[in-house]
Amino acid sequence: MATEWKLFADLAERAGEKRVTVEAAAGDTVGDALEELLADRSDLEDRVLDEEGELRSQINVLRNGTNVLIEEEGLETELEGGDELALFPPVSGG
C-alpha cells in the first residue's frame, strides 16, 4: 500500500514535486514513511535531517493535519490506511 506526502515551500522545490507517494502501509510508522521519502532525495534529506540523522527541530511533520511531534508519538506514530502526511519547513510570521 502507498502513502502520500504533501511537501510545502522549499521542501517541494528540493524534492522536485509537491506530492510524493511512498511505499508505507498501515502498521508502518511515520518515520518509516519519512525514510522512504528521503531515500533518493539527498537535497531534501539535508534540509530535513541534521548531521546526526535526526529530524531538524524546526521541521513539522503532520499526519491528517495533526503535528505528530506534539500531539502524537512523533516519528513512532503508526500509520493507518488512507493517512495523508505533510512536511512543512519553518513557518515565520510577520
Rank of each mutant, 00 (worst) to 15 (best):
L79Y: 00
A33W: 01
D46M: 14
D46E: 15
K6W: 10
A9Y: 05
K6V: 15
E23I: 10
L37P: 11
D32P: 12
A26P: 13
V91Y: 03
N67D: 09
A15K: 03
N67Y: 03
E76Y: 08
L37R: 02
F8Y: 14
D28P: 10
L87P: 00
D10V: 12
M1R: 13
L75Y: 06
R19V: 13
R14L: 15
A9V: 13
A15L: 04
A25E: 11
S42C: 03
E76Q: 14
L69S: 11
G82P: 09
L49N: 10
W5I: 13
A26C: 09
G27Y: 10
P89S: 00
E35I: 01
L11Y: 06
L62F: 10
S42V: 04
A26E: 14
R14C: 06
L55N: 07
G74Q: 03
I70E: 08
D43F: 05
A86Y: 05
E51F: 07
E23Y: 03
D40C: 03
V30Y: 10
E51R: 14
A24W: 07
R41V: 01
G93A: 10
G27I: 03
L75F: 08
G53H: 10
E35M: 06
S57V: 15
D32W: 03
E71R: 15
G74S: 01
R19Y: 08
E17M: 08
V48W: 08
G74F: 05
G93V: 09
G81K: 05
N64V: 01
E13M: 10
T29K: 04
T29R: 07
A86R: 15
V30K: 08
R14D: 05
L85A: 07
E36P: 02
D10G: 13
E71G: 12
D46V: 11
E51H: 11
V61R: 11
I70N: 13
L34Q: 03
A26N: 05
D10I: 12
V91L: 07
E54M: 10
E72Q: 15
L79Q: 04
L62P: 12
D32I: 05
D83P: 08
R14V: 04
L69T: 03
R63G: 04
E52I: 11
L11W: 00
R41H: 01
E80W: 02
A24N: 09
S92K: 00
G74I: 00
N64Y: 02
L55V: 05
V68Y: 14
G94M: 06
T66A: 12
G82R: 02
